[in-house]
Design a binder for these strands. Structure first.
Ligand SMILES: [Zn+2]
Ligand SMILES: [Zn+2]
Ligand SMILES: [Zn+2]
Ligand SMILES: [Zn+2]
Lengths: 153, 153
DNA sequence: TCAAAATTGATATACTATATCTTTTGATCG
DNA sequence: CGATCAAAAGATATAGTATATCAATTTTGA
C-alpha cells in the first residue's frame, strides 16, 4: 500500500529541459503532492509543507507554485473539488491531450485516465449537436473506487 | 434574443404537486435564475434580487433556497464554476436521469444537454476499466458556443 | 561586480460556503 | 378564532478558497 513517490531524476530532468528552476519551495510542494494519496487543497499543502519542518510555507507561495506546476502539467487542478493532484505521467514521457479524472466519493482517491477516442468522440458529438465546439477535454467524474464499493457476494 | 423566462403556472404547479411552498423569497431567487442568460453565483443572485427593490435579500437565504431548489431539480449547481443555473426542463414534464452541461468559455452561457446512451456508456466503460463504479452522471464540459466561435469563412 | 529578471515574503482583501441561533410566518386543530 | 407546532426567513459569525499588490531576496548573465 505504501507507494510514496517524490521528485525523481526524471522529474528533475523535465524541469531542466524546459528551463524551469526546481527551487526548494517548488520541490516541497511537488513532493507533498506526489506523496499524497488523495487530492489536496492549497491550504492542505501549505500545512503539510510546514509539518515537521522549521520553515514557514506561506499559502500565497503555494498558490503561485501551483500555478506554475499546472502550466507545465506537472500537476492538475480538480475544478469540482478545488483541489490539486500530481500528474500520473509526471515521471514518464507520456504526453497528454486532455485528462479525465475519476474521483472516489468514498476515499477521495483520484485516478487519472484517458478516455477512449470513441468516448471523447461521443461527447464531442453531443456538444456539436447544440453548436458547441473546441471542447476542452478535462472531465471529472465522481464514483466509487474498487476499495469503496459495497462488497458483492 | 430577449427570451426572458420567469416562474410560470407550470412551475407553480410543480411546487404545489410536491407540497413545496413557493414563497416570495423562493420565487425571487428562481425568477432571477430563470431570467439569467448565464450561470450566476449565490452572491450575484442576492445582488440581482436586491437591485431595484427595497427588500434586502441576505446571502444566507439565497444559499438556503438554492439548496432546496437543487434538491427538487428546479436548478443545478455547476461544480466547476461554483455557479447556479435553472433547469432547462423546469417548465416541462421532462424527468432527468443526470444532466450534462456545456459551458461557453466566451460568454459563460450554459447549455443543458443529455448525452447519448453511447456517450454515457463509453465514459462508464473507461471508469470500469480502472475499477470505478456507481459513476455520477453529471458532466461539465467547457467549450465555445456557436456565437463565440471564431468565424470561419 | 552590477543591473535586470525571477522568485519569494508579507499583507490585505475578495469570493464561496456553512454553522447556529433567533424571529417571523403559516398551517392545523380544538 | 386563538393556541400550537413546524417551516421559513433573518441575523451574525466563521470557515475555506483564491487573487492583488508591493517589498525583499536570490539568481542570472553581461
Ligand atoms: Zn496528467
Ligand atoms: Zn475509494
Ligand atoms: Zn435540468
Ligand atoms: Zn458563448
Amino acid at each position: 500500500m505504501s507507494d510514496v513517490k517524490t521528485v525523481t531524476k526524471s522529474v528533475e530532468q523535465k524541469f531542466a529541459d524546459r528551463g524551469i528552476r526546481l527551487t526548494r519551495r517548488r520541490r516541497q510542494v511537488l513532493d507533498v503532492l506526489m506523496s499524497a494519496d488523495a487530492a489536496l487543497s492549497a491550504y492542505d499543502i501549505a500545512e503539510l509543507c510546514n509539518a515537521g519542518s522549521e520553515s514557514h510555507m506561506p499559502t500565497m507561495s503555494v498558490y503561485r507554485i501551483l500555478d506554475l506546476l499546472q502550466e507545465e502539467q506537472f500537476i492538475h487542478r480538480l475544478e469540482t473539488a478545488n483541489k490539486y493532484v500530481s500528474c500520473s505521467h509526471i515521471a514518464c514521457a507520456h504526453e497528454h491531450s486532455g485528462s479525465q479524472f475519476l474521483i472516489c466519493d468514498g476515499c477521495r482517491r483520484v485516478e487519472e485516465i484517458q478516455l477512449s477516442p470513441e468516448a471523447v468522440g461521443a461527447v464531442e458529438m453531443a456538444a456539436n449537436a447544440v453548436g458547441f465546439a473546441s471542447i476542452s477535454p478535462q472531465l471529472e467524474v465522481k464514483g466509487l473506487c474498487v476499495d469503496c464499493q459495497p462488497e458483492r457476494i
